[in-house]
């Protein structure tokens, strides 16, 4: 049985009194310890699927199941222990007036997990796990570079030792060299902790590098499901996938 199952999911927002049908009947299943990618251009509904899993988007049809159980209408603490999200923009997702210590300590406080010396130990360990020195503990986000902020955001998501990480364009705000470091960090953490990833990106090359299987999305619909081998063989059926593939490879081929 798959760890994450999404069945004929529909998400409809209300914008200016008009319904906007952002996700239109998407189904997918992510196995335990798998890394699954959602790729598509802006407005394709890929991020909305992650937000729907977290209860941050109005689901108007279909079902989302974790470990075979349908999610409660309101996500509870148990959900937060199992599923965490890393957002695209580390400038917007960290509280600007909280130190790294407070940001990382908050999940522990909410879940009543660790206090005093144990709390401090876990925060320093979490920083070390994402490759940051303990000296970063009492800094504010504005004192960190983009790559360091994203490391803090990843550390925050891992504080509760979840099984599932939802990654929404985790490296698209980063420079190429910093992106490589962040992707390597995510791969290492997944291997070490047996995490399951559901990752969203507009960059097919990033998804190809990180994911075993992927769904290509366009205008709220799943255009095609592919695995890593099929992509490597250019074995794709939908013309939109080909277009996206060509636009991505053309950029890369130019330099070779």
């Amino acid at each position: 049985m798959a760890l994450i199952e999404i069945d004929d999911l529909h998400v409809t927002f209300e914008a200016k009194g008009r319904p906007v049908h952002a996700v239109r009947g998407v189904s997918l299943a992510v196995e335990v310890r798998e890394s699954y990618g959602l790729v598509g251009e802006s407005g394709s509904g890929k991020s909305t699927i992650l937000r729907a899993i977290c209860g941050m988007a109005p689901v108007t049809g279909g079902a989302i199941r974790i470990d075979g159980r349908a999610l409660a209408p309101r996500r509870d603490r148990g959900f937060a222990r199992r599923v965490q999200m890393v957002f695209q923009d580390p400038y917007a997702s960290l509280h600007p007036r909280h130190t790294v210590d407070r940001t990382l300590g908050e999940p522990l406080a909410i879940h009543g997990l660790a206090r005093g010396a144990e709390r401090g130990r876990r925060i320093v360990q979490a920083l070390a796990d994402v490759g940051l020195d303990a000296a970063f503990r009492f800094r504010f986000p504005h004192q960190l570079s983009g790559g360091q902020r994203q490391r803090v955001a990843i550390a925050r998501a891992l504080m509760l030792e979840p099984e599932i990480l939802l990654l929404d364009e985790p490296t698209s705000a980063l420079d190429a060299s910093v992106q490589a470091e962040a992707l390597n960090l995510l791969s290492r953490l997944r291997a070490e902790r047996g995490l399951t990833f559901l990752m969203v990106s507009h960059d097919l090359a990033v998804i190809d590098h990180m994911c075993d299987r992927l769904t290509v999305m366009k205008e709220g619909r799943a255009v095609e499901n592919l695995d890593h081998a099929q992509l490597a063989r250019h074995d794709m059926k939908a013309s939109y996938t080909r277009e996206l593939f060509a636009a991505t490879t053309e950029r890369i081929a130019a330099a070779e």
């Binding site: 190429a176 097919l204 090359a205 190809d208 490597a232 890369i252």
Partner: peptide, 8 residues
């Protein structure tokens, strides 16, 4: 060198 490539 640090960019991921499709099929890499």
């Amino acid at each position: 060198g640090c960019l991921p490539k499709i099929g890499g």
